[in-house]
Design a protein around this nucleic acid. Structure first.
Length: 957
DNA sequence: AGGCGGATGCTTTTT
DNA sequence: GCATCCGCCT
């Protein structure tokens, strides 16, 4: 885009070097381009230097990108801009606190200081851990608040409340609340009354008015509830018709909340003190202290103020960030850029009204901030609005269609305020072609349908995409599947892998649920002794031991020597990074997940003193919390992108498939069951209260809250905006997909959905450089798993184990593994010398200890058999599977055949163009015996049998 | 239109 | 644990 000249509107913004501007920068309108040009232009205004301009971005990445693009547009070099204030709010506030804010806590009456060693705590799981620790001692110290703790579901809901209040600019002080914070907690009755009246407005019926939504919603008022004695009966409450009596508005709103406020205040204040004592700040507190400092220290504020303030992605800012921007602006050179239609971060306390009601808020905040001192010392009544309307991404059909999404009812009964239309600035396409297909389709098996459609689209000129003005047939790379929730995308990824369709999942993944993480956790537990059996069980099972064998080893404590040696080596590693690396090396994990874990653990634990127990807890809790982490796991090559809508924001794709538009999935249902919560405009409330009202202690429902919440309703606006974001990612084509029960968002699309017959063709896997052999990754929890060993009849081994035994076998396997990986190991037994000679005789490449997964269908149920191939010998035209056996005799061969057959079928899928064979290598006499594999069906039957015998399957994990 | 009971499923993610 | 939505009944 940099090579183009700005369009008229863009130029207007670039030239607007003074005054207040609010820029409506719709999707794909060249926002970053314009901002960087404007920044460069400011620098050319003679006396303006980089340090005079504050440029705020949403992410660190964006800040970096801005710097690069500014450099490309002006005479400054990257090094000259290194210290320029181009930063996120959090990054800038952190700098400011380090420079000037060590005593900022005193502004809240807290007698502690920020120090140069105070760290921002970035990891959510760790913060929750600390918060729990804090809360435990708080409860101990405050028996007067015990009843409040009884109402809480969990500790984190209080932490969330604190963060939410901080994002609104509500802070506690030693004497009460900072500035006018308490008024937020009390709420605003006038505003509430307006909502009440709206909800209580009678509806239009065919013959005259019918009851209001409020009256309707309050039917069943007493069903499944137990209120305190002062609650009205349903008959009292719904006495009026078609509306309920007006008097209920104030009766419900007015409530003595002094104790509740005191409770929240004390938790809040003491947690801040706790964090300072423990030398950390969370993201919210960074902004809070900066705000308090800038508010109270007038000379400091004036000394740091900027001549120009420019805020990007303004639709994602919180209220306190808006106010910070005002405090940091020394003049009325204030420019905010954003698109309210793309505001999708309310769960991060973004407030869409910052941009939608910019002027109104500007006035209000100025008034608030100037209550006792002229902090905002410039006029705010002249606001210039600029709309960027030329879109450089999508066709006109897509742009036009996208507007529908903002008014689609998201539930069966919802009515959308049609006035939203007035706030939409329509965009104008600049593409040469408009050949867009906009379609909807359903299918009971949605995953398969999507894959079918993808195969129909790739290479199909009807879905041509634009490339430098030319139309060409699409490739996998051109297609992106977007989803509302992460899980669907992850399932689709697994399903695509079944068919060999190349898919790259982009965005946060459940890093702690991976095999890598689970094995690391197991070894750490082994090192910790306390939980070592849990660790050994995982490690042994991974090594192919059956459950019975594992149990035996655990009972006798006779752990395989190779493993014990490895444990002792591990114990010598000094850092968690070192431990992790050794574990991953042992298992041959050399992938993005392993790298991600190492860097995450090093970043989290190496800077502070933690013992391994802490790390074990961290891994456990992260697994528990389904914590996700960004992992660069691009398989490379031509592949379909799968990501959440949030992850896709700011990106573009030639073809977008908006998937999983199903009931309860998009929009999702549920959420927000916290008993103590803050909601505008009613303030701080509790939905349940623990008292002994009826003479018996109980968690009583709060009848007032019940009425209030009916007036607040659920907002689906953000869900519509999410759909809008998804559609506007598309350059050429958009498809919508739903399964068995489509959501209203899907049904209300102005499209006629077609029904897709799933017909996915298995595609040959392109690359051979996969790290794991697998036909399918087992979906955790759902399908049951078995190891090939459990297919075998154990009785034939009873005499084999005699004499040499399992430990010997493990040692020989260990030797074979190391030797074939090129490690310097010496054979210590005749068996090992045989193995050495055997390996030396093979000319091809080795793949060692590969995990394999084979899904087998049994009675319509998917069962996954997993195991480890000792050795794959790969040459140009052949692949040989070798399994080492230390048996002295040959009588178990029939049983081994089953095991090797499993490996055979997996390997054949992986190498469709080579001849695959399977053989057993008997280490005792150095003889190799080729095995004739069983058919897949025959294996399925075997699984069937073991099912019935054992009753239950061992789970993999 | 309104009342009632049962089924249903429970985010998103950056700082 | 909970709110919400759907469908059936009156």
């Amino acid at each position: 885009m940099t090579e183009y000249e700005p369009n008229e509107r863009q130029q207007e913004l670039i030239d607007a070097t003074s005054g207040i501007h609010v820029v409506d920068a719709g999707a794909g309108t060249g926002k970053t381009f314009t901002i960087t040009r404007r920044y460069a232009n400011l620098l050319e205004q003679g006396d303006v230097e980089p340090e005079d301009i504050l440029l705020i971005t949403f992410t660190n990445n964006a800040a970096g990108e801005m710097k690069e693009r500014v450099v490309a547009n002006c005479d400054y070099s990257m090094s000259a801009l290194r210290d320029a204030p181009i930063n996120t709010f959090h990054g800038y506030c952190h700098d400011l606190l380090i420079r000037h804010g060590f005593d900022a806590p005193t502004r809240l009456g807290i007698d502690d200081r920020i120090t140069s060693s105070t760290q921002p705590l970035e990891n959510e799981v760790i913060e929750e851990d600390r918060f729990r620790e804090f809360l435990d001692q708080f409860i101990e110290a405050h028996p007067e608040y015990h009843d409040y703790f009884r109402t809480l579901n969990d500790a984190t809901s209080l932490l969330d409340l604190i963060k939410e209040l901080a994002a609104k600019g509500v802070f506690p002080t030693d004497e009460g609340w900072f500035r006018d914070g308490e008024s937020f907690l009390d709420g605003d009755y006038e505003e509430f009354k307006t909502l009440f009246d709206e909800t209580n407005e009678p509806n239009e019926g065919a013959n005259g008015p019918t009851q209001s939504d409020l009256r309707d919603g309050l039917s069943g008022f007493e069903r499944d509830r137990c209120y305190e004695p002062d609650a009205p009966s349903e008959n009292d409450l719904r006495d009026g018709y078609p509306q309920i009596d007006d008097a209920w508005a104030s009766r419900a709103f007015e409530e003595d909340r002094d104790n509740l406020k005191a409770f929240v205040h004390d938790v809040y204040l003491e947690y801040i003190a706790f964090a300072l004592q423990r030398n950390y700040l969370n993201f919210s507190f960074l902004l809070m202290f900066t705000f308090a400092m800038l508010c109270e220290d007038h000379s400091l504020r004036e000394s740091v103020q900027f001549d120009h303030v420019l805020v990007d992605e303004f639709q994602d800012t919180s209220e306190i960030q808006f106010k910070l921007a005002l405090l940091l602006a020394g003049t009325d050179n204030l420019c905010v850029v954003g698109d309210w239609k793309q505001s999708i971060y309310s769960f991060q306390y973004a407030s869409v009204d910052n941009i939608r009601r910019f002027e109104e808020r500007l006035q209000t905040y100025k008034r608030e901030l100037n209550g006792d001192y002229a902090r905002v010392d410039f006029p705010v009544d002249d606001v210039n609005e600029i709309s960027l309307v030329e879109n450089y991404r999508s066709t006109q059909s897509i742009l036009d269609f996208s507007e529908h999404s903002l008014t689609l009812p998201a539930t069966g009964s919802e009515e959308v305020d049609p006035e939203i239309q007035d706030d939409i600035t329509s965009l104008a396409a600049t593409t040469e072609h408009d050949h867009s297909n906009i379609e909807a389709f359903t299918c009971d098996d949605e995953q398969e349908a999507i894959l079918t459609r993808i195969q129909e689209i790739v290479g199909n000129r009807e879905y041509a995409v634009e490339d430098d003005g030319e139309l060409r047939a699409p490739t996998y790379d051109d297609v992106a599947v977007l989803t509302r929730t992460r899980d669907f995308g992850r399932e689709l990824q697994a399903c695509a892998a079944d068919y060999g369709i190349p898919v790259a999942y982009e965005g946060g993944v459940e890093l702690f649920g991976t095999e890598q993480s689970i094995l690391l956790l197991a070894w750490l537990r082994i090192l910790e002794h306390e939980d070592s059996k849990r660790g050994w069980a995982v490690v042994l099972e991974e090594a192919g031991y059956t459950l019975d064998e594992v149990k035996h080893v655990l009972d006798t404590g006779a752990y395989p020597t190779g493993m014990v040696e490895f444990r002792d080596q591990l114990a010598e590693a000094e850092t968690i990074g070192g431990i992790a690396r050794r574990v991953f090396d042992r298992y041959g994990f050399d992938d993005a997940y392993a790298d991600g874990l190492v860097s995450l653990l090093q970043g989290t634990f190496d800077s502070t003193h933690h013992n391994r127990g802490d790390i074990v807890r961290f891994l456990e809790r992260s697994l528990d919390a389904d914590a996700t982490h960004e992992v660069e796991d691009n398989p490379g090559g031509d592949s379909v992108t799968v990501q959440t809508i949030h992850a896709a924001k700011g990106l573009e794709h030639p073809i977008v498939i908006m998937a999983n538009m199903n009931q309860h999935r998009f929009p999702p249902s549920g959420g927000g069951a916290d008993r103590i919560r803050y909601e505008e405009p009613v303030g701080l409330r509790q939905s349940k209260r623990y008292t002994d009202a009826h003479g018996r202690p109980h968690l009583y429902d709060n009848w007032r809250y019940r009425i209030l919440s009916k007036c607040l309703g659920r907002e689906y606006d953000e869900e519509r905006r999410l759909l809008y974001v998804a559609i506007t990612r598309a350059e050429s084509h958009v498809l919508f997909s739903a399964g068995e029960s489509p959501s209203p968002l899907f049904e209300n699309l102005p499209l006629e959905p077609s029904t897709v017959e799933p017909d996915v063709e298995a595609a040959a896997v392109g690359g051979t450089e996969q790290t794991q052999l697998q036909i399918s990754v087992p979906v955790p929890e759902a399908p049951s798993g078995q190891s090939p060993h459990s297919l075998m009849d154990d009785s034939v081994f009873s005499d084999v184990e005699d004499g040499k035994g399992m430990e010997f076998g493990t040692r020989v396997h260990d030797f074979a593994e190391r030797y074939s990986m090129g490690q310097a190991v010496e054979p210590t037994s005749p068996d090992e010398r045989n193995v050495q000679a055997f390996l030396d005789s093979l000319p091809g490449e080795f793949r060692v200890e590969e995990n394999v997964y084979l899904p087998v269908s049994v009675d319509g149920q998917q069962v996954t058999i997993s195991g480890i191939v000792d050795l794959l010998h790969v040459t140009d035209d052949r692949v040989e599977i070798v399994d080492y056996k230390t048996d002295r005799g040959r009588h178990a061969e029939a049983e081994y055949r089953k095991q090797l057959s499993v490996y055979y079928h997996v390997v054949r899928q992986e190498y469709p163009d080579r001849r695959v064979s399977a053989s057993i290598y008997y280490t005792a006499d150095g003889e190799r015996v080729e095995v004739d594999p069983l058919l897949l069906d025959e294996l399925g039957e075997l699984v069937d049998d073991t099912h019935e015998e054992r009753g239950e399957d061992p789970k993999i994990r």
